[in-house]
Design a protein around this nucleic acid. Sequence first.
DNA 1: TAGAGGATTGAT
DNA 2: TCAATCCTCTAC
Length: 199
Amino acid sequence: MGQKLQKEFYLRANVLEIARDLLGQILVTKIGNNITAGIIVETEAYRPDDRASHAYLRKKTKRNSVMFCEGGIAYVFMNYGIHYLFNVVTNLGEEPDAILIRGLEPVAGIETMMERRNKSAPARITSGPGALSQALGIDLKLNGKSLQGNEVWIEESNPLNSNKIDVISSTRIGIDYAGKHASLPWRFYVRNNPWISKT
DNA sequence: TAGAGGATTGAT
DNA sequence: TCAATCCTCTAC
């Protein structure tokens, strides 16, 4: 088991840099006595000057209010009435930046994940933001939780391994409504990793 | 207070 | 290709 990423990691001003740095780190949840974890292989960054963000133009609503807190906490919301999506809030409180986690490579609690996903094989159980949230037991109860706590956190993986990661950036998924912002290359993923979500 | 639509998934 | 499904936001 590695060390939890320190709060300073999340307080940096460049959300794109943090989104890239999250690749290769390990997202862990502990729900009851069930620990589940996976290596982060796909992320997307959102900023307040970006129409695709819930906090576009720094507009604060009940749903996105945790994005306006200091970085290092979880932002969970329901999408399409069906799926929970898990984000990491970054930057200082004045800047509502967030990073959506879109893909994980399972490393612990795989049996639990398969049960939660109602699958008999691990294939693709954590590929896609809604899917990985279900596999890790993430729901609205985790919204606003500190990533220094003991329910959900991100562990630093071996830096030597991180250096080997071949990162690709591309446009984000499912935000065609965002006009020119839809073409920003703010999605980051690990080249050739089988656990990234479908394009 | 009502209506529209969404940072998706999985079955057809 | 399209339905499921419900919460949030916006406009009236």
